[in-house]
């Protein structure tokens, strides 16, 4: 792990990514310590202020401190990213292995399902779901997870097919090893590396999607702070003050950039030849 961090640090963009990601994670996790105000505390007297010593990023239309809202918004972004990618990863691994190891008809059906999910634009899928069950953070997590399952499932299936036909796996099957053993001891460790790279490169997309849906008013419900809902407030006030838009977009852009740079750097590093570093 130390060696890995050292390798990332030697790549300037990777280092920048690592710093941005660390900054985001620390500020989100420690939001309750760092935030100078309660993020949902109204203070109408101080509404729509520009940045000052009291309010680093100014205040919104209800006088809430934007800096505190940005910090707590990071928690929402992280929560959505990890729950979404975690569940998509688990379901994708299971479905991909079933497709790779199961009978042809099952493989074809799963692949058709994957293709279908991939052919609905994610935002449209999300909006359809919101129309049916109403906006909430759970809907957001569910929809983004469903739409990312095929990404992982396809990779797992291809890798499972490759490993399945290897001689050592065939030998082990002849020795009477169970399917579960082969999948968990041989297939899983072999696909974990590429999957984690894929997952890390998905984080910026997920964060941007959550913010986007909350921006449309179809995601996190007020008064919970989310970068997207801060931008939504800013959009309504665009002719009065630019600050809410600036406050909402800076962390969003920095986080997506950070995760992208880190993800690309990881991908370059975790090339199979370099995997012994982990």
């Amino acid at each position: 792990m130390k060696a890995l961090i050292k390798r990332i640090s030697s790549d300037p963009l990777g280092l920048l990514g690592l710093c941005l990601v660390t900054l985001m994670v620390v500020s989100a996790l420690g939001a309750s310590i760092f935030a100078p105000y309660d993020p949902i505390q109204l203070n109408i007297m101080d509404r729509l202020q520009g940045p000052s010593a009291n309010h680093l990023l100014g205040t919104d239309q209800l006088g809430r401190d934007l800096f505190s809202r940005v910090l707590f918004g990071g928690q929402v972004a992280l929560k959505v990213a990890f729950l979404t990618i975690g569940s998509a990863l688990i379901i994708g691994v299971v479905l991909g292995m079933i497709a790779g190891y199961g009978p042809t008809w099952l493989d074809n059906s799963i692949m058709l399902l994957f293709d279908t999910i991939r052919s609905v634009p994610t935002i449209m899928l999300a909006l359809a779901a919101v129309a049916m069950v109403g906006p909430s953070i759970t809907t957001v997590i569910f929809v983004i997870a469903v739409s990312s399952i095929p990404n992982y499932g396809r990779v797992v299936r291809t890798q499972t097919l490759t490993i399945k036909s290897k001689d050592f796996v065939k030998a082990e099957m002849l020795m009477g090893a169970s399917l579960l053993r082969i999948l968990s001891i041989h297939v899983l460790p072999n696909i974990l590396g590429p999957l984690l790279i894929l997952a890390s490169m998905d984080i910026p997309t997920v964060i941007a999607l959550e913010a986007g849906l909350s921006f449309l008013g179809m995601g996190v419900k007020p008064p919970t702070p989310s970068w997207g809902s801060i931008l939504n407030d800013g959009f309504a006030l665009i002719r009065n003050t630019p600050w809410p838009i600036i406050a909402g977009s800076i962390p969003l852009v920095l986080a997506t950039l950070g995760f992208t740079f880190l993800g690309e750097s990881l991908r370059d590093l975790l090339d199979p030849k370099l995997r012994k570093l982990l």
């Binding site: 910026p204 941007a208 913010a211 986007g212 921006f215 931008l231 800013g234 959009f235 665009i238 002719r239 630019p242 838009i245 977009s249 969003l252 852009v253 997506t256 950039l257 992208t260 740079f261 690309e264």
Partner: peptide, 21 residues
């Protein structure tokens, strides 16, 4: 890379803010 990662609605908001408003 920066262009690719910038969410389209953020770019839209900024272009509205800068070039239109």
């Amino acid at each position: 890379v920066a262009c690719i990662t910038a969410p389209s609605f953020v770019v839209a908001l900024y272009s509205l803010l800068i070039f239109a408003v």
